[in-house]
Amino acid sequence: MLDFLNNTQGKVVKIEELIFTTLINTLSNILFSEDFRDLKDDETAHRLKFGLLKILENSVTPNVSEFFPIVGGLDLQGLRKDSLNHLDELSSFSEAIVKERRARITKKVVVADHEKDFLDRLLENNFTTAQINILVLELFIAGTDTVVTTIEWAMAELLKNKEIMRKVQKELTELNHNSIMNSDLSKVTYFNACIKETLRLHPVVPVLIPRRAIEASYELYYSSKCPSHDYEFIPFGGGRRMCPGLPSGVKSLQTMLASLIVGYDWSLPNGEDPTKLDMTEKFGVTLQKEKPLELVFRRRE
Results as ranks from 00 to 15, higher is better:
L199M: 15
R240N: 11
L199K: 09
E294V: 11
G249P: 02
G271H: 10
G245A: 14
R299M: 04
K196L: 08
G245R: 09
V262M: 05
R299K: 15
D230N: 13
E232W: 05
H202A: 06
L257A: 08
S223F: 10
A213H: 05
L277G: 01
R212F: 03
L293G: 03
C226Y: 10
D278P: 04
N270W: 04
R200G: 01
V205K: 07
R212T: 12
A258S: 11
K291R: 13
C226F: 13
S252C: 13
F283M: 15
F297A: 01
V205I: 15
G238A: 15
Y218R: 11
Y264V: 07
M256G: 02
L257K: 08
E272G: 01
A216P: 09
R298M: 10
L201M: 14
H229L: 02
V207Y: 13
G263I: 00
S223I: 07
G237W: 02
E281K: 13
S228F: 05
E290R: 13
T280I: 03
D273F: 02
Y221P: 00
A213R: 06
P269G: 04
V205Q: 10
P227G: 04
S228P: 01
V285T: 14
W266S: 03
L295C: 06
L293N: 01
I209S: 03
C226V: 04
V207Q: 10
C243S: 06
K251M: 14
K251Y: 08
P235K: 11
P244G: 11
K196V: 06
I234Q: 05
E232Q: 14
S252G: 07
G238P: 00
R200E: 04
R211L: 07
M279E: 06
T198S: 08
M279N: 02
L201H: 08
V250Y: 03
A213F: 09
G245D: 09
A216F: 07
Y221H: 11
L260K: 01
S223K: 04
A216C: 12
P227R: 03
L208T: 10
V285Q: 06
T286S: 14
P244I: 15
Y264W: 13
T275H: 06
I261P: 00
P292G: 00
L268I: 12
R200M: 08
L268E: 04
L257T: 07
I209N: 09
T275S: 13
C243D: 06
K196T: 11
R241M: 08
S217N: 14
L246R: 13
R299L: 05
P269V: 11
A213M: 10
N270V: 08
V204L: 08
S228W: 01
K196Q: 15
L257W: 03
Y231E: 10
S259E: 11
R200H: 07
Q254N: 07
V250A: 10
H202P: 01
E197Q: 13
L295Y: 03
F297E: 03
T198Q: 09
E294N: 14
Q254L: 07
G263W: 00
G239W: 05
L208G: 06
Q288Y: 01
L295H: 02
L199R: 07
L220N: 12
S228G: 01
E294R: 13
K276P: 00
K196M: 12
E219S: 12
L257I: 10
P203Q: 12
T286C: 08
M242C: 05
K282D: 13
L277S: 03
K251A: 15
G238I: 06
S252T: 11
T286I: 11
F233A: 05
T275R: 11
R200Q: 12
T255A: 13
P206C: 09
W266L: 09
